[in-house]
């Protein structure tokens, strides 16, 4: 009987957890999209410039890749208010995730730009394209495709790491689960359900990204070599 009661309970809390899942998706999407917007210029600066700007970009990437996301989150949420910069929970979560993700994404993009052969740029220039145009129309379309396998890992990675914002109390999936646990003291059913939701979502994302990779792959160009084991 307890088993049936647990099932009913799990069904009853599903809407609340799904509300959390929506927040998880919002944070993931926001962080990834704003992350790309910052990552592309950072990658370009690191690849094509020298001097202070390059050092700055390198320092940014190394610092954010070299420290835990959770510490970054605490600096943003608990630390920055001492400088007068106050965020609400959701914004703080977004800011930390976005800065963290942009650092990783810039590395994927930089790697991908490096993987497009020099000859492509030379050929484009020989055809009379300006450097910027050659970059925009020849190098970038290929580089973004080459970055896709690593980038699709980043998507699954983000969905999972958004759970970290539970520790500042932003209302994503895992936070919702923890709140239900402290309210009802039913640990096992809630954790099982949260875990099941994560598994379904991550497996689905992996499938979709596999399809996207396949769809955008350049015939004759091998991209699988760039895949990070994940």
């Amino acid at each position: 009987m307890t088993f049936v009661r647990d099932l009913v309970f799990m069904w009853e809390i599903l809407p609340e957890l799904l509300k959390g899942l929506v927040v998880t998706f919002q944070l993931t999407t926001l962080a990834l999209v704003t992350g790309v917007i910052l990552a592309v210029p950072v990658a370009l600066v690191r690849k094509y410039t020298r001097g202070p700007l390059n050092w700055l970009a390198t320092a940014y990437v190394e610092i954010f890749r070299g420290t835990p996301l959770l510490v970054q989150l605490f600096v943003v949420y608990y630390g920055l208010p001492e400088l007068g910069i106050v965020f609400d929970r959701f914004t703080a979560a977004w800011a930390a995730l976005f800065l963290n993700s942009a650092a990783y994404q810039s590395e994927y993009i930089r790697g991908a730009i490096g993987a497009v052969s020099e000859g492509q740029l030379i050929a484009a220039r020989a055809l009379g394209m300006k450097p910027l145009a050659a970059f925009r129309w020849v190098v970038m379309p290929q580089a973004l495709r080459l970055a896709l396998p690593a980038w699709s890992n980043e998507v699954a990675y983000m969905v999972k790491y958004v759970s970290v914002v539970y520790l500042i109390g932003a209302m994503e999936l895992f936070t919702r689960g923890q709140i239900i646990i402290s309210r009802t003291l039913k640990v096992v059913p809630v954790l099982l359900e949260v875990a099941a939701i994560y598994i379904i979502v991550v497996v689905a994302i992996t499938r979709v990204m596999d399809y996207v990779e396949h769809r955008f792959s350049i015939p004759g160009l091998e991209t699988s070599g760039m895949r990070r084991e994940f």
Partner: peptide, 9 residues
């Protein structure tokens, strides 16, 4: 299964 779960979970 384990790779689908966040480390925190």
């Amino acid at each position: 299964v384990v790779r689908s779960l966040p480390s925190l979970v």
